[in-house]
Each structure stands twice: as C-alpha cells, then as structure tokens.
Design a binder for these strands. Structure first.
Lengths: 219, 219
DNA sequence: GAGAAACGCGAGTGATCACTCGTGTTTGCC
DNA sequence: GGCAAACACGAGTGATCACTCGCGTTTCTC
C-alpha cells in the first residue's frame, strides 16, 4: 500500500530531448495536415521527423498524446493571439476597426498554423482535444458576447448568445475560404470580403444602440 | 486480344439484392456519421446492417465503393433539391424571399442527411468523392453567381465570383451551426439568424442596382 | 574518467483491418 | 421438380498499425 504515488513522470529532459520533441511535433503537424489524424501513422510521423519509431515513443506514450501536446501548444498560442485581440481599448473602437483588431490576429494565426483547424474540426479526433477545443470555443464566444453586451447593454441574453454563435460560425466559414485562397492579393481580397460580411451583419445590431448610425458609401 | 470488353458487371440483381444494398448504404451512413470515413470498418458497417462481411463484399468491391455509391445517391438528391431552389421565377423575388427559397431546401436536405456533410467535408475521403463534390460545389457557385449577375448585370466577374464564394462560405458556416442546434425552436431561430446574415450581406450588393432600397425596421 | 541516465535504434509483437473463399441456402425460370 | 444463378455466411489471410524491447551511444554529474 505504500508508495501509492501516481506522479506522472519526474523525468529529466536534456536539451537534445526538447529539440526532438519540437521536431516530432512539427513532423506530426505536417502529417496531420496532409492525411488527417486517424490516417496518420506513428511510423509516418517518425519518418517525417527522420527518427525511429522507438525514439518517438520515448517522448510520447501513444499517438493520442502527440495530438494532445500539439493541440495544447497551439491552444496556448491561440489564447495569446485572441488575448491581444480583445483588449479593453478595442471595445471603444468603431465597428470596422474593432473587427479588424479581432479578426486579423485570428486569421494570421490560422494561416500560419493550418494544422490547428485540421485537428479541431474533425469528428475523428480523440476526446481530450475536443474538450480543450470546446473550452476555447466557449471562451471566444463569451468574449464576442461581452462585446455585443458592451455595445447593446439591454439585449436579451438568448439573443446575444445567438448573435455571438452566428458571428463566430460566419467567421469560421469565411476563414475556411481564406485558407483555401492562394496567398497574395486574392487572399487579402477574401479577408476584406469576410470583414464586409461581419460589418454588415453586426452594424445594425450595434448601430441601434451605439453611435455609428450610417454606413459609409461604397466606392 | 479478343473479348476486350471492359463491361463493368452485367450482373442480374434480384429484389432482395436491391434491398440489401439500400440497407447496407443506410448502415454505412450511420457508421460514417458517428466514426468518420477512415475509422469506419467494413465489418462495423456489415454488423450495423446485420449481415456478414462476405455479404457486404457481394455488393461492393471495396470500402471506397460504398462511400462513392452513397455519395453519388446523396449528390443526386442534392441536385434535385437545389434544382427546385434556383427556378427562374425565384429570380424575380425580393431578396429575403429569394433567400428563403434557396436556403430552405438546402438546409432541409442537410438536416435529413447529415452524412452528406460528413462525407464531403473531411480531407480523409477518397479522391473520387472529392471530385464529385467539387463539381457540385462549382455548380452551386455558378448558380449563385448567375443570381448576382441577374441582380447586378454590370458587376465585374472577379468581384461577382468573390461574392458568390463568400456567400456560400457563410452559408456553410451557418449550416454547421444549424445542424449543431437541437431540433425545434432553437434550430428555427438559428435558421432565421443565418438568413439575416445573408440578407444584410447581399442587400447592399443587389440593392445598388435593383429596386429594394430600404431595409425594413426591426421589431 | 567512470557510473548513471537520457537518448536512439529497428526488428519484432499482438491486434485490427480490408478483403477472400469454400460451402450452404434461396430465388427465378423451364 | 430441377437446374443455374444470386444470395448469405463466417472463418481465414495477408497487410498494416500502434506499440515494445533489448541493446548500443551520447550526455550529464561527480
């Protein structure tokens, strides 16, 4: 009965080990992007990282742990990206500028980490990641809801939730389109168009109560 | 060299066989929905259909063929659904009614065939389905583009394409939200909200050239 | 520089998967 | 009724996958 410690692993890592982990996660991201989580084999990940299967299993107990660690790191970066998007001073911006401030970092992050959507979107992924994703999703929704509540203080909470949900869903749909567009002017134009959707959808919502009544004339 | 016929299969099917095929496709749809295409095993599909693995392979040469046949049938139904959505008389409707006429059948179809999105959306699916889906996608985009061109005849083609792309992307994002909502009043409210997004986005586009200048007051 | 521990390897292992095959049953046709 | 073909079965087969293990190498610590 003694020594019932369930301590995970007081394992000392060397610098080489940390490097290998980063290398393996990068390889896993590539393989997950191209083949998806389920069809990605651990041997393929090891091969992509130019190491043996045994080496991979020195750092990760199983395939799911790779995805969880990768997802966790991406989630952390994502929180930073959207943390700087929802600063208090942005709350006072006019709607188009606010949308710029919120949307740009999120798009930038997803463009540079396409594996994020690949991991979060599939219904094939392990439950652990889905939970973390749900948390992040709920957190983002709450922030959008706060924003709407700030512009329209007396909105019913169910309506506010519905608008936040729809805003986020529209963003996700547009984000997929942005990621599908080739980098360059075409992608930029798609981003502009996505922001146009959001502005036109939200302007009447916030415009009713805030002081941004008239839409600017289109060129 | 003689008998170089590549005839697929002049196989005579009995009524029992046709029934089995429908039964197997239904079972496959269930399994694909819950586990995804890659993780779905042919044995699991056979079990869901209460037949033996050997019976399954009497009607389908391999796992991909099941998905292709299922996708093909869904695609056919889908074309019917959106064929009745883009009838010429709908072209003359005011924007909100037009959106009702186009969006409602598509949502209805996807609600009753959730496996459709599951098959079309994954990046894990066999190439054959992706091709068919691309065709359908392009066809739908063209219809939306025609619609925009009808309302705004002198719009530049690249801008028209971008608007059609974004409209469809927004719809897909909202559709995911609709499918995630529980059936009943909540789903209906989500559908209404999705239509609101589309109307607000497209109204300034078509309003510039057509005769629907003023938005109705919101209650 | 010697011992310990982290690192690295790759053939091997058991499980699972897509798919086959030999055999028995049902159906359509004369 | 009898024959041929379609239907149905489920144990079996080879391939592949996640994961292990024994052993050799590098790095840290003293």
């Amino acid at each position: 009965m003694s020594e019932g410690f369930a301590e995970p692993k007081p394992r000392r890592r060397q610098a080489r080990g940390e490097r290998r982990i980063a290398q393996l996660l990068q390889a896993a991201a590539n393989v997950f992007c191209t083949t998806g989580y389920t069809a990605a084999s651990t041997n393929a990940i090891a091969r992509e990282a130019s190491v043996s299967p045994g080496t991979l299993y020195q750092y990760f107990p199983n395939k799911e742990a790779i995805a969880v660690e990768l997802g966790g790191r991406l989630m952390h970066e994502m929180r930073e990206a959207h943390g700087q998007a929802f600063t208090p001073e942005n709350f006072e911006l006019p709607l188009p500028d606010l949308i710029d401030a919120v949307v740009d970092p999120l798009i930038e992050f997803n463009c540079q980490n396409p594996v994020f959507l690949a991991l979060m979107h599939g219904s094939e992924i392990p439950g652990r990641i889905a939970e973390e994703h749900d948390e992040l999703h709920a957190s983002l929704l709450a922030r959008v809801g706060d924003l709407i509540g700030h512009y329209v203080p007396d909105i019913p909470s169910d309506e506010r939730a519905r608008i936040a949900d729809m805003t986020f869903a529209v963003f996700k749909g547009g984000l997929a389109l942005v990621l599908a567009a080739p980098e360059g002017p075409e992608r930029e134009a798609t981003i502009v168009e996505l922001k146009r959707v959001l502005v036109r959808y939200l302007d009447p919502v916030v415009g009713d109560a805030a002081g941004a009544p008239e839409p600017p004339p289109r060129p």
